[in-house]
């Protein structure tokens, strides 16, 4: 149902535009600040238009080691990407397999397994951070990609979502596949995965962002700058006891840190739509 009322149109548009300005202004200021030199940012007024540096600050943080970090933004972005991809891919893989087992196989204590997985929803990283740290430290995985990824890789949410989706798959489809000679792996690969393309795309976006934005865990286990993620580095750059905060570098890094999530969303959104158009339950 749609209403056509000119007054309502104007009000809602005004409201929306205002919201966009409110949300976009800080981003704009970051973009602007990233094009200035450090000294021009300390003149007392925050600039609202581009400065003299252009893309210079971006290129500088990407190629030269950033002060107080000992590594450049390229490395930071790479670390973040590896961590986010590892978490997203790992979570989806594990969730698909776990949900597949729970829905399509009959084994003893099947429901117990399901509930055990489900209960872990109540235990995010923050709650179990001390024991997890101990385990990871004992396994010698501090300052490593596996240490960054593995503790975050199991996801009850994703398992649950896949389970719900699998339950909607008509049982005749499985039976038809069995009659057609597809074993469990073939059924998963040829029928179930193509059907859950949309779910996989959606979850990938969510899980990639979740991995990218991780703060507490990487902060805890990465002490070497070689494994530092970009989100952590921002905080490090800001904590300066004696020097001025290098705002031009910070904003440039921030903007760079924002890019991959945006790229993922934009790219995967096309898959969403394609998946929605192509498949039919």
């Amino acid at each position: 149902m749609r209403y056509r009322r000119p007054g309502l149109d104007i009000t809602s548009h005004t409201l929306l535009i205002l919201c966009v300005i409110v949300f976009f202004l800080p981003v704009w200021m970051a973009i602007v600040a990233a094009t200035h030199t450090q000294s021009s940012l300390y003149t007392g007024t925050a600039p609202l238009w581009f400065g003299s540096e252009g893309l210079g600050n971006f290129l500088a943080v990407l190629s030269d080691p950033v002060s107080r970090l000992g590594t450049d933004a390229t490395r930071l972005l790479l670390n973040s990407t590896i961590m986010a991809l590892g978490i997203a891919v790992g979570k989806i893989t594990i969730a698909i397999l776990a949900a597949y087992a729970i829905v399509f196989f009959r084994f003893p204590m099947r429901m117990l397994c399901f509930w055990a997985i489900f209960i872990t929803l109540m235990l995010p990283v923050e709650v179990r951070i001390m024991p997890t740290y101990k385990v990871v430290a004992d396994l010698g995985m501090l300052n490593s990609y596996s240490g960054l990824i593995l503790p975050l890789i199991a996801s009850a949410t994703a398992t649950f979502l896949f389970r719900q989706f699998y339950l909607t798959v008509p049982p005749e489809l499985l039976e038809a596949a069995r009659v057609d000679g597809a074993g469990p792996w073939r059924f998963l690969r040829d029928i179930l995965l193509p059907l859950s393309k949309t779910n996989i795309a959606a979850l990938f976006v969510i899980m990639f962002l979740y991995g990218w934005n991780q703060y507490l865990w990487p902060l805890l286990i990465t002490t070497e700058s070689d494994y530092m993620t970009v989100v952590i580095s921002l905080k490090r750059m800001l904590t300066s006891a004696d020097n001025l905060v290098p705002w031009h570098t910070v904003t440039a890094t921030t903007l760079l840190a924002m890019l991959p999530p945006i790229i993922v969303i934009v790219l995967m959104q096309r898959y969403f739509v394609k998946g929605l158009v192509d498949t039919e339950k």
Partner: peptide, 17 residues
């Protein structure tokens, strides 16, 4: 599959993709 039979289902059970 080893029985060498073919089945036609009520709702056809075609693979949608």
């Amino acid at each position: 599959v080893e029985r060498d039979i073919a089945m036609v289902f009520q709702n056809y059970a075609l693979y949608p993709h």
